[in-house]
Design a protein around this nucleic acid. Structure first.
Lengths: 219, 219
DNA sequence: TCAGGAAGTAACTAGATGGTGCATTAAGCG
DNA sequence: CGCTTAATGCACCATCTAGTTACTTCCTGA
């Protein structure tokens, strides 16, 4: 599209030998992947550097410490899901439809981004010390709770939902029924003697979860 | 009670300087605690040895490797909860009562044994490679699923529950709504801006969970 | 065009870390 | 009581790991 582009003025920057932003991004991607796979304690800075095709020194140059790198990764992970949720524009849907859509979205998000789950698990192993410091996460979370709260309110007014449901409890339950299934897919597949990640099993679970939530809120 | 006991014939054995069983148990306890706190990767063999007041050499003498020690800890953890569940004798209760009791038990078990949750998380990070090897866990799990299945069947016959509910999906959901809350208590308390481990909050959650499950199965 | 700062590299360190070889000591049996 | 065996302790190793030092190479604005 832009055959005449030169190096300095180019929106879709072509690769350059030295690019701080690109290196930072590569490090963050590699770190997300390795932290998700091995946890904060199990991940290795050398491995992250290699995977990012960057020198280990760069990690310390840009992020200061392994702990700080993890903090950034976790923060990004939370902001990503919260942003995606807001983009659903659930306020434009009928209450029941909005809730079903949210359950479906949450399920699919976990399915497509299992690193999110592992990162959250690792963060809780460390008693949320990184999330605690992030104002960005707190602000985004507030918006999210408000969104679900508003769906509930609209549903009560329309007569679809019963009154008195705590939006936080509902939120937790919607997350829980998807999260648990995915995070424990390995032990679960053995204990229940069926492949929980089979395509049909996944669809079945989504249906079950939507049903669970609708029954929970219905008037 | 047994003032005249001598060292060899004593049911409640008195401490002796060399006691393989006692040492093994101390190591297992220490290992459970440290693995739960730091995960398999984050736990340190030296720390476990120190906490068990045993020499590190003993760990390798009795368990062979760190990995093997973890396997034993995870196996015991599963057997403990499965045993406790069977002791509930839910078959003696009315279906609805039995289900409520199971939800409550599961919740309280997680609350009192948070190590169980962290161990399961760690085991899933390692793709269940240890659980996969344990026939004991598989046998115990089968009995557990059968138990819930029988409650469901009885409930359908009595007219309390609707037909066609998959006992595995129900099992997963019962575990999920408690497990998620507890495992993510640290990030959750920040994101939802309330202390999820407050006594009132815990009671509220249990009520909510029982309600969720009863609404899910009711005819 | 060229100086100086930013980006990048390789080699290194100090302290862990999982795991062992071997000597020592208590238990308990005959 | 002495002897065999199992339980225990100590010192040690090879390797790994987060973090650093000292250096080179590239980019860019004046």
């Amino acid at each position: 599209m832009d055959a005449t582009s030169d190096k300095s003025s180019n929106v879709a920057k072509k690769k350059r030998l030295r690019d701080a932003e690109a290196t930072k991004l590569r490090i963050l991607e590699a770190a997300k992947s390795d932290f998700a796979k091995n946890g904060l304690g199990g991940a290795r800075v050398d491995v992250i550097a290699a995977k990012a095709k960057a020198n280990k020194r760069m990690i310390y140059h840009y992020f200061g410490s392994k702990d700080n790198l993890f903090q950034t990764v976790v923060e990004n992970a939370y902001l990503d899901i919260r942003t995606a949720e807001l983009k659903l524009h659930l306020d434009d849907l009928e209450p029941k439809e909005a809730l079903e859509r949210l359950v479906q979205f949450t399920w699919q998000y976990y399915l497509r981004n299992p690193e999110f789950i592992t990162l959250v698990n690792s963060e809780n192993l460390h008693r949320a010390k990184h999330v605690k410091k992030s104002e960005l996460i707190k602000t985004a979370s507030r918006k999210f709770v408000a969104m679900v709260s508003s769906i509930l309110d609209r549903g009560v007014i329309s007569g679809d939902f019963r009154a008195g449901i705590d939006p936080v409890q509902l939120n937790i339950t919607i997350a829980a029924i998807g999260y648990y299934y995915i995070t424990n897919r390995f032990t679960g597949s053995i204990i229940f003697e069926r492949d929980l990640m089979d395509k049909d099993a996944l669809n079945e679970r989504l249906e079950f979860n939507i049903d669970t939530i609708i029954r929970l809120v219905s008037a």
